[in-house]
């Protein structure tokens, strides 16, 4: 009987090990870890977005579009080294000293960082259009539109673009105020990693002098 005590104790220990194992829900732990990692990536995406907005604010009267593109390229390169893709499109609009009842100019820059070539790009503003083709990843196109406002009002810039993987139309509201200078930055920002994809469309308006 005394010798069997070892065997009985062994069986008890094995039962305890089974109980420990069954209480340790590995799949739940793995899922929790994944959720935490996804939440970190969301935080990182929001950090990049907020810093982009700050770049627009800080670039006040300092060649806004160039500073924004510099920021995008910098972050993109850093993320690339971590197997994370930062893609998107930037539309920068600049309105200088808007005057009522006279012809005004709105300069625009479209920066493609979608990760692929834009095959065709069409911008429409105030009933006139401009068309571009083969805008490579990491390159931009510039141009301007003219308009004659009689008072403060809203205009719409319509952007249509086609790439190998998407065909998209985007409408951007442009609030025109007589006597004011403005820079409007519109962004479609996408961050893709092996775990998840974050995406946001947003704009930032700053009054310039």
């Amino acid at each position: 009987m005394k010798g069997q005590f070892f065997l009985i104790s062994g069986v008890v220990v094995i039962l305890v090990l089974f109980l420990i194992k069954s209480s340790l829900n590995l799949s739940q732990i793995i899922e929790n870890k994944r959720n935490l990692e996804v939440s970190i990536e969301r935080k990182e995406f929001l950090n990049i977005k907020n810093s982009l907005i700050r770049t627009v604010e800080y670039s006040y009267n300092k060649n806004e579009t160039e500073k924004i593109i510099n920021y995008i390229n910098y972050v993109r390169e850093k993320l690339w080294g971590k197997a994370v893709e930062l893609n998107g499109i930037l539309i920068g609009l600049s309105l200088k000293n808007v005057t009522a009842n006279s012809e005004n100019i709105m300069n625009f820059t479209v920066y493609n960082f979608l990760g692929e070539t834009i095959q065709s790009l069409n911008l429409t503003f105030n009933s006139s259009s401009q068309v571009f083709s083969n805008v490579a990843d990491g390159s931009s196109v510039n141009g301007n539109f003219t308009f004659t406002p009689s008072s403060d009002g809203n205009y719409t810039l319509t952007l249509n673009y086609t790439t190998k993987t998407e065909n998209k139309q985007q409408e951007i509201q442009v609030e025109v105020e007589i006597g004011k200078n403005k820079f409007i930055g519109f962004f479609d920002l996408r961050m893709k990693s092996m775990r998840t994809e974050n995406r946001d469309e947003f704009s930032k308006v700053v009054e310039t002098s």
Binding site: F6, G10, I14, L24, I29
Partner: peptide, 24 residues
């Protein structure tokens, strides 16, 4: 008998706990 008990425990332990790694 003690040796058999130890072998049972070790076998159960390695079977249950060494296959999957607990995520960090």
């Amino acid at each position: 008998e003690a040796l058999i008990a130890i072998l049972f425990i070790l076998t159960a332990y390695f079977t249950l706990f060494t296959g999957e790694k607990v995520p960090d």
